[in-house]
């Protein structure tokens, strides 16, 4: 999962459209694997992912995305549409509505 996250980070930091969209966005996102009980926190500062670190607990991050490892990997590599997963109840997302919408928009710009 860590390697997929690094790949995702490179895509986010290197995508012009994404950077234009989230240039004022600073937050931290927790990707939590429900089946394996571990996760990673992505720290985002003014649109750039500046750090990816292993989460100490499930309570970290302003935005949380919780699902099985396989689903998270599919999501991070663009194989699954976050909106579909949300509407189908396959992923649990926690955080302000604005943060959740931005996260979804980032994914759309990366793989549209």
């Amino acid at each position: 999962m860590k390697s997929v996250l690094y790949e995702f980070t490179n895509r986010v930091n290197g995508n012009e459209k994404v950077q234009k969209l989230i240039r004022r966005w600073s937050t931290s996102v927790l990707m939590w694997s429900q089946d394996h009980g571990f996760g990673f926190v992505l720290t985002i500062t003014t649109g750039k992912v500046v750090e990816v670190k292993k989460a100490v607990s499930e309570d970290e991050g302003n935005v949380k995305v919780v699902s099985s490892t396989a689903t998270l990997l599919d999501m991070l590599s663009g194989k699954e549409n976050i909106a579909h997963l949300y509407m189908d109840g396959v992923v649990e997302t926690y955080g302000s509505e604005k943060d959740q919408i931005v996260l979804d928009a980032v994914a759309r710009l990366l793989w549209s």
Binding site: N62, V63, K64, T93, Y94, G95, S96, E97, Q100
Partner: peptide, 8 residues
């Protein structure tokens, strides 16, 4: 039930 706030 549809709110995704972390605090909930």
């Amino acid at each position: 039930t549809t709110l995704g706030e972390e605090a909930i």
